[in-house]
Design a protein around this nucleic acid. Structure first.
Lengths: 219, 219
DNA sequence: AGATTAATCGACAGACTTGTCAGTTGATAA
DNA sequence: TTATCAACTGACAAGTCTGTCGATTAATCT
């Protein structure tokens, strides 16, 4: 789908009728709409209104609402998919692997804060119909594997890798899902501000690493 | 809203036309539909189809879709609200209070596994419009308070109570949000089976308690 | 400059949804 | 038994939403 450079000169002048730019703004607007409402409740008219281009452009470029939805899904998952795939954790200790994994995951979602919400909608409403099996599954199994290794090696406590993987993902992603709703920031900082995103990353990593280790005093 | 016993004899014979029973089945069907789709994407026709009664009954008893939605919200939050309010944690140590809180919360959502999903939809789609401020807020501040006490007392590590409260809630609730989507159970057990719910409760409590404590080896 | 094609728009047809209403049926009470 | 009323139904009016189509405009090529 890469457009062949139709002429040698790269014109950086802002074009009025730029197919790629139009598709991009539609995708961005659609991402916001789908993140908030999900596939069914999203309104193509609302998406069009946010872009400034006519509603028919959606159908011109993406066939129908479903096509647009899939495009949004693919675009927003691309980075996560790529990052988790190029992660090579086999040689690391379970603790180091877990930390590495969390850093990558949290960094990725901090840059795509709408991703968790989109994933949620997809999972709940469409029961993952639009996931062939790609991202979220592979990401989950990666985490399960790390946990299994750690338990076997005795460096993690006797946790259930499957359930714990879900709970860990919850610690990482829940923040973003609720973000739109949470008004009460600690000292007036916006939840998705750079400072708060960094804080959340730190907190989540510390919390999770502590959570998987042997607790010192079992009461 | 308690119906006054219209006659002394309590008739346990199954009535064909029972207003309360009809409302109850509508509410239950609506709970499922709203949990999966949220307010906008929920279809009154789909709700009616699940109940077996005519669609117009929804409007007869609940005025409109929004009225039904609010009724569902109130009914599904009632228990959580009541449980968290009658929790008296002031006199307990931070650890004991946290454990107590988690037991109550997890027990409640295990009995109402659709609640987290409904909360999620309400938060994301409607930005909490239908929460006056009731349940989820008070529950969150309760947890923040416990964490603050624990940090001040030095029994918890130097965590950010606000962010950590969200992450903890994520550990507790995320399991239920994804439940409909997760097929792969560890040994073939269904995610919402009694055994798995109990396992999740145990795992979440152990994970969270370990997560808030000082980690033994700070690498 | 004129022709060609891709990008864009606005209006609209068709389908789907909500909410209403007039009428029917079963329970209760006189 | 009959009257009355609440519970209930199916058909439909009105509104909303998706997706299409012919017309229009900007860029590109010759």
């Amino acid at each position: 789908m890469v457009r062949p450079a139709k002429s040698e000169k790269v014109q950086s002048v802002k074009k009025c009728r730029d197919a790629e730019a139009t598709q991009a703004v539609i995708l961005t607007a659609a991402e916001a709409e789908f993140a908030q409402h999900g596939l069914m409740a999203a309104r193509t008219e609302a998406i069009a209104a946010k872009t400034g281009v006519a509603k028919s452009m959606i159908y011109y470029y993406f066939k129908d609402k479903e096509g647009l939805y899939q495009a949004v899904l693919e675009r927003s998952h691309a980075e996560l998919l790529q990052i988790t795939q190029q992660l090579d954790l086999e040689d690391l200790s379970p603790e180091a692997a877990l930390k590495q994994f969390l850093v990558a995951l949290l960094d990725c979602v901090a840059r795509n804060p709408k991703l968790p919400t989109i994933m949620f909608h997809e999972a709940v409403q469409n029961q993952g119909k639009y996931y062939k099996r790609s991202s979220s599954l592979s990401i989950d199994t990666t985490l399960v594997n790390i946990l299994e290794r750690g338990v076997t090696a005795g460096v993690f406590r006797q946790l259930d890798p499957f359930v714990s993987a879900i709970n860990i993902m919850g610690s990482c992603l829940f923040y973003f899902i609720g973000a739109g709703n949470i008004q009460q920031h600690p000292q007036g900082k916006r939840v998705l501000s750079k400072a708060m995103l960094e804080k959340h990353t730190q907190e989540a990593i510390a919390f999770i690493l502590a959570g998987v280790q042997q607790s010192q005093n079992v009461s």
